[in-house]
């Protein structure tokens, strides 16, 4: 079976079905990733955008990586950021550049995921990049290095962020209670 990288290479040479095959392989994983972040309905709305964005940027795919799933998470994350930013605001944002940098989808996620309230509260206190690495590793079963690829950060940085996130969670009183371990 051809690797994702080989299929993307064929797609760049004009094989129109090759890229669709890549998407078929990973659509469930990416669909669930989107649903975990924006809910099912919004995930369904943006899924087609994600595929087209991936298709249009496939020339930038680093074909030294055989599997494209981490790359597709990155494309999906970028589309999600645009999706949130493009939602109508009640008041015009005074400084869109700053808004873009401070963008943080997780409060919305927290509101939608109505389980384990204590854990959600603890997650909300993490830094956005810590939560993203944690989510990619815990929910998407990526390695830390792959999570780094998704976020376009070095593997060492991703490892540090995961370590910080896990430590902060363990030390959060509400999580510690769930784990039934002392907080000291």
């Amino acid at each position: 079976m051809s690797s994702d990288a080989e299929l993307i290479g064929r797609s760049l040479r004009g094989d129109t079905s090759a890229f669709v095959e890549v998407i078929r392989r990973h659509e469930t994983a990416i669909g669930n990733y989107l649903a975990r972040r924006v809910g099912r309905q919004a995930a369904e709305d943006v899924l087609g955008d994600v595929w087209v964005a991936a298709y249009e940027s496939r020339a930038t795919y680093d074909r030294s990586y055989p599997e494209a799933r981490p790359w597709l998470y990155g494309v999906a994350l970028n589309r999600l950021r645009r999706h949130w930013r493009s939602e109508p605001a009640e008041q015009p944002a005074p400084d869109l550049t700053r808004l873009a940098h401070d963008w943080d989808p997780w409060p919305a996620v927290d509101a939608r995921v109505d389980v384990q309230a204590p854990l959600r509260r603890a997650l909300a206190r993490l830094k956005p990049e810590e939560r993203e690495v944690l989510g990619l590793v815990a929910w998407e079963d990526l390695t830390v290095a792959e999570a780094g690829r998704v976020l376009d950060i070095p593997a060492g940085t991703a490892r540090r962020l995961l370590h910080q996130a896990r430590k902060a969670l363990r030390e959060a009183p509400e999580v510690a209670a769930l784990l039934q371990v002392p907080t000291t």
Partner: peptide
């Protein structure tokens, strides 16, 4: 990490949504 995984179950997009997204592509 085990606690985190308990938050991972959410309703997935419908099969029809996957079909529509692929049609867009």
């Amino acid at each position: 990490m085990d606690l985190m995984k308990k938050l991972s179950d959410v309703p997935s997009p419908s099969p029809e949504a996957y079909d529509r997204a692929r049609a867009v592509l």
